[in-house]
Design a protein around this nucleic acid. Structure first.
Length: 278
DNA sequence: TCCCAGGCTCTCT
DNA sequence: AGAGAGCATGGG
């Protein structure tokens, strides 16, 4: 069980298992986190800047974080109330999945801001991580709100007020028109992001795919990483190959209820170990 | 130079 | 409904 203390304006989390910072923050589910030479991570989410690290004894320290911010934002953002040990136990009934879980230890599924996640994965299509991060950074610096030293992610309202020419500073290529379509449909209510977590998975996916530039893969990333649909299963090129090679084309039965979480472990395992060849 | 990147749209069968 | 070209940009 975890034990949280607030001292000197920092938040200390003791006894938290299954939380590895590099695996969680650099596994391709979020794009605004980076690590300095001393292992301290920093990033922006929900309009707040955060620095955090994990000490040698396993304590997680969130710097300059009030009790309110921890309870209102970070506790949920890092998915701290979910028992990953239990999920991993279930997944590990399959030997191959067990290996994937072990290799990808400490990955937690973040609960991110819906509009940021939507834009991020629109940008991710047919793109690489380095460039995705660059485009998102320019998006925030140009159209986000400046707050003492960092930029929040732009709101849908702000993006919807822009033109394609305005977005040329992003150098996001053909994706710019998709971002505008997403922003406009969110603002005019044609797509209701707030309600997605209450819809059945298929309905939620259909709702997101009303946006031009959002297909099944991007939709499932949104549903998994910002709408708590743990059964959403983003099928990218890596996962398609991995499922074929490791499981003969279909995810094992014991993983069905946590398909999205299994996906993340398999993705990291398959990609990082290059076990699928080139 | 060519190829590819956590895909999607559009077009043509 | 399934296959294939084209898409913007930048790094290897």
């Amino acid at each position: 069980m975890i034990n949280v203390k607030f001292k000197d304006n920092n938040t200390y989390i003791y006894g938290l298992s299954d939380f590895d910072l590099p695996h969680t923050l650099d596994c391709g589910q979020a794009f605004r986190w980076s690590c300095d030479d001393n292992g301290r991570w920093s990033g922006v989410a929900f309009g707040k800047y955060l620095e955090l690290e994990k000490t040698a004894d396993g304590t997680i320290i969130l710097y300059n974080t009030s009790k309110e911010d921890f309870e209102n934002i970070w506790c949920d953002y890092f998915d701290l109330s979910r028992d990953y040990g239990e999920i991993i136990k279930i997944l590990s009934e399959n030997e191959t999945l067990k290996k994937a879980c072990e290799y990808s230890f400490g990955i937690r599924i973040l609960n991110q801001e819906p509009f940021e996640t939507l834009c991020s994965f629109i940008i991710s299509q047919n793109n690489n991580i380095k460039r995705i991060k660059g485009i998102i950074e320019r998006l925030c610096e140009n159209f986000g709100e400046y707050k003492s030293g960092y930029y929040s992610f732009p709101t849908a309202e702000r993006l919807a007020s822009l033109t394609l020419e305005d977005l040329s500073v992003l150098r996001s290529g053909f994706r710019a028109k998709y971002l505008l379509d997403a922003a406009k449909k969110v603002v005019n209510g044609e797509v209701n992001l707030q309600n997605l977590e209450n819809l059945p998975l298929d309905d939620a996916r259909t709702e997101l795919m009303k946006i031009v530039g959002v297909g099944p893969k991007v939709a499932d990333c949104c549903l998994l990483f910002s709408h708590r649909h743990t059964k959403a299963f983003p099928k990218d090129v890596w996962i398609k190959r991995a499922i074929e090679v490791l499981f003969g084309g279909e995810l094992p039965e014991n993983a069905q209820n946590y398909a999205g979480i299994a996906q993340q472990y398999i993705f990291f395992y398959a990609r990082d170990t290059k076990l699928l060849g080139e």
